[in-house]
Design a protein around this nucleic acid. Structure first.
Lengths: 352, 352
DNA sequence: GTTGGCACTCATTAGAATCGAGTGCTAACG
DNA sequence: CGTTAGCACTCGATTCTAATGAGTGCCAAC
């Protein structure tokens, strides 16, 4: 009972002796390179271990028995299982970005300009370029940001635009379609009432609006309720997907490509998948680990994007389970750090 | 030597006799259905023509000689060439949407709510659903819209947000990163100066800004220049792409899928392609017609979206050259009309 | 415990035979 | 003269078989 409280059985599934680990590493690395089942001799020719192929073979049957490897069919090489990749990721891989790529990242972050949305979108492209994987960037949520200013703009006698500027620099807008015409003066008056009313609140806060019946009061009420209604599409979150064409380079079954793309099209599904992975404290979800069947041949790498030490956004990489984990994880890690830095410096002294 | 003058002659390439046309139609229709080369007997069994397969064969050699059909190899059926599709589109296809789809469209447009961007994005999804093709929706340009309001919002002592509301309800924002701190009062003052200065102008108009050296004047100057700088990403145009997963369903070569997706990722390329097609007065560009080699196995259907009788936006469908033209063209046509109607009713009485 | 040797497995490849969809040609027919 | 039935022919696709060889598991020897 000392430290042998695993499952019901005390099999030391989480630790392999050094040689098994080395062999597993070799198999995974080789398979990532070649996308082919790898045999005992190819492992012997690498320099992770220096034993004969026969020895490797006998170790491999052990690794297969314990669920780290599998054979597509008798007399084929071995392929890592999800569990095998998991061990590789947890114990073995320690990737650093190549110097070229390091440069690419720092060049990017020193030169990128413009609004947050643009930066996030371009970051997504950067990640995808670095790794040849599809990337997902979820922008920081605006839920916490408070309202700095609200303004009404009359576009036409019956159409009024509500524009709210939040403390994080983002903007929410809603168009009101009115039943009756309003005068420009009423709009101005309602606008300043609104501004006073909402200043400092967040979009999530519900608040009591005096329900008088003047046209100005009606206008104010409608504007408030419109602002508090989230838009039908993205739930306030901004999702940027980069390099979806990379999906087609990752799988050779066109049907798999179609499925994965179909999922990527549903932004909300992707966001909640990432949320789920992060909630479970993972940074990598391999194959069946994320419990999302249509993506069972994919692995997802997630890294949080912190603002004021809270994780509000995320960057993710999506690719086949046989992706280059060290490289991809390193890329995600460094980009996440840089992006966090960028966003923090932008928000560190906001006037809430 | 009587009528044996083929090439440099006034051959009536643009008109086929009725039977040839019927046969061509049958071949195209069948090939759209089956994606296979179609033989003389399958044509004979359809009811476009009622002649024997032998007759059809001899007509087919003529159609092939004239470039409407081609054989992948001897002893295979015929496949339409781009020219064949072109004839089909110009002379033969006359599609109407099925009643179910008509309903889907009108339901959509009666129930869709929200901001322009959301509507455009959802329209893109609708089109893609209707046709099983990838759709591109290019939002109306804001170039013509005049400024209704400009406001400065101080986010932090050194960061000021410029928010411009345009007459079409769209918003442009720029963040200014200042070298020196500015007071909240200065921001307010600059804001009202800006508003007065820019009201009624468009983003394209360059205007003289008095270059005094007060901190307020500097702020105003920077704000104006920021607004006049277009964002690095989309050139003011908004592009919405829907159903990119449909690409994977349209081609069975994964490499083709990758190429097409790669192009779709470059929004600007797509937009200029659509522009080019429309400039040439086409509504359909088939295969090599659009002169864009990477998409030579694709056809593009474009329909303008009019605002105040000017074409400022566009909707497009992209698919394999063997797409269902009648259906796709009908869908593009009706959605374009509905969208135009929607946008016109929204802007018809804007206060410029 | 490690290794070389060896028999065995089985997907993949190559080649040969066959099939058959579809053609082009020709002769007969109305 | 246009249309059609008949027929020989072509050639990709399919099927089958045999050969290949990468890779394994086992065992005996080191």
């Amino acid at each position: 009972m000392a430290r042998v409280a695993k499952q019901p059985t005390p099999l030391p599934t989480s630790d392999l002796d050094a040689r098994k680990a080395a062999i597993l590493e070799a198999v995974v690395a080789e398979h990532i390179d070649t996308a082919q089942p790898v045999g005992s001799t190819s492992v012997a020719h690498r320099d992770e271990v220096h034993v004969s192929s026969a020895t490797i073979r006998s170790e491999m049957v052990a690794l297969e028995r314990d669920g780290y490897l599998m054979q597509p069919h008798t007399s084929a090489g071995r392929v890592p299982t999800d569990k095998g990749y998991r061990y590789f990721v947890d114990h073995l891989s320690s990737g650093v970005l190549g110097p070229t790529q390091q440069h690419e990242v720092s060049d990017f972050f020193t030169s990128v300009r413009g609004e947050m949305e643009d930066i996030l979108e371009q970051t997504s492209g950067l990640l995808s370029n670095l790794t040849s994987l599809t990337s997902v960037v979820v922008g920081p949520s605006h839920a916490r940001a408070s309202i700095r200013t609200v303004q009404l703009v009359d576009l036409s006698p019956r159409r009024v635009l509500v524009v709210a500027v939040l403390s994080d620099g983002s903007i929410e807008k809603r168009t009101l379609e009115l039943d009756t015409e309003v005068s420009a003066l009423d709009v101005v008056e309602a606008s300043s009432q609104l501004d006073a009313l909402l200043l400092g609140t967040t979009l999530e806060q519900r608040l009591e609006v005096p329900s008088r019946d003047t046209s100005i009061a009606t206008l104010v009420r409608e504007a408030v309720s419109a602002l508090h209604t989230s838009t039908p599409t993205a739930d306030g979150d901004q999702v940027f997907i980069g390099g979806s064409s990379k999906v087609a380079g990752s799988f050779d079954q066109v049907e798999t490509v179609r499925k994965v793309l179909g999922i990527l099209e549903q932004g909300l599904v992707v966001v909640s998948l990432l949320q789920d992975i992060m909630n479970r404290g993972l940074s990598v979800a391999i194959g069946s680990e994320h419990g999302f069947a249509p993506l069972s041949s994919c692995a997802v790498i997630v890294a949080p994007v912190l603002v004021e030490n809270e994780s509000t956004g995320a960057i993710a990489l999506l690719g086949p389970t046989r992706m280059n984990y060290p490289e991809a994880m390193a890329a995600a890690e460094v980009v996440s750090r840089q992006l966090t830095k960028r966003l923090s410096s932008a928000s560190k002294d906001d006037r809430g």
